[in-house]
Amino acid sequence: MEWYYLIAIVFISLALLLGFIRLIKGPTAADRVVALDTMSIIITAALALMALYFDRYIYVDVALIYGVLGFIGVIVVARYLERAL
């Protein structure tokens, strides 16, 4: 494994861990959603990195679709919290 994968994986796992702690702790629903939003972006980036590591082009598409779905999910939850759904 090359050095930059190692650094990136360490940072990404720490980031996911911190996001997850906030997701569990977060005093209000909005806090949890913002943690989830950040985590979904981190996972999008991690999927792109995985595509590079395994050398599979199709994983980049997975990252794209994951990003789109995460965005839609956050918008839906935001509208729901606004009592508009």
Binding site: Y4, I7, I12, L16
Partner: peptide, 20 residues
């Protein structure tokens, strides 16, 4: 590319630290 990947993962971590 390697520089960008390291830089990017550092900022992802800082963002999550901010959330925390």
């Amino acid at each position: 590319g390697q520089g960008l990947i390291v830089f990017g993962s550092l900022f992802l971590f800082l963002g999550a630290l901010g959330i925390f």
